[in-house]
Amino acid sequence: MTTDLFTVQEDEPLQFVAALMDWKQLDAVPVEDVRHRPVGLVSREAVQQALQEKDPTTAVRLVMDPRPILVTPETPLTEAMRLLEARKAAALLVVHREQLVGMLTRAELPAL
């Protein structure tokens, strides 16, 4: 699980999110609201596709997955793996008391 996270706000432009992903070599970025609660997850693939179809100043909220998988630090690894596979998601967000504390990506797990 990654705990040193880079996040974006819902109103960040796609061009900024793409630059952040390139700079930090990220495949997914959590999206937070103004109270720092996770409200979405955006993948590199979604950003790249959107940049081909939309204005680069389009807000990330229009491209993000608004229903990311949320788990707690106590969620068993087997359950996290099952959730990732069931939703075909690239990552899930780990929250504690509505605050983002980590992210778990497919790359960090044993082969699914």
Rank of each mutant, 00 (worst) to 15 (best):
A46Q: 08
V95Q: 15
D33I: 03
V42E: 00
M64I: 06
D33W: 08
E85Q: 14
L51C: 04
M21Q: 03
V95W: 14
L104G: 13
E74S: 14
L104I: 15
G40R: 02
A107D: 15
V94R: 04
P13A: 00
D55W: 04
K54S: 07
A107W: 14
L20T: 05
T72S: 15
A89L: 08
L62N: 10
P73R: 11
T78W: 05
M103V: 10
T58L: 07
V47C: 04
L14Q: 02
A89F: 04
T7I: 11
T2E: 15
E85C: 10
V71K: 08
D55I: 05
T57I: 03
V42N: 01
D22W: 07
P66V: 03
E98C: 09
V101E: 12
V8S: 00
V29C: 01
Q48P: 00
Q99D: 11
L83N: 03
A80D: 05
V71D: 06
T105P: 12
D55C: 07
R106K: 15
V63R: 04
V29I: 13
E53H: 12
M64R: 05
K24T: 03
V42I: 09
T2M: 14
L70S: 04
V31Y: 02
A28C: 09
E108L: 12
P110C: 12
L62R: 13
T57C: 02
D33N: 15
V8A: 04
K24F: 13
V94Y: 05
A50W: 02
Q48W: 00
T2W: 08
Q9M: 08
L93M: 09
V17R: 00
L5D: 09
M81W: 07
L70M: 11
M81V: 12
H96G: 08
A46I: 02
V63M: 06
D11N: 14
V31W: 01
R35W: 11
E32G: 00
E53K: 12
H96N: 13
T72W: 03
E10R: 13
V31L: 04
E98Y: 11
T105I: 09
A46T: 00
D4F: 04
P73T: 07
L14C: 03
L84Q: 05
E74G: 08
L100H: 10
L104R: 15
V60Y: 05
A89E: 07
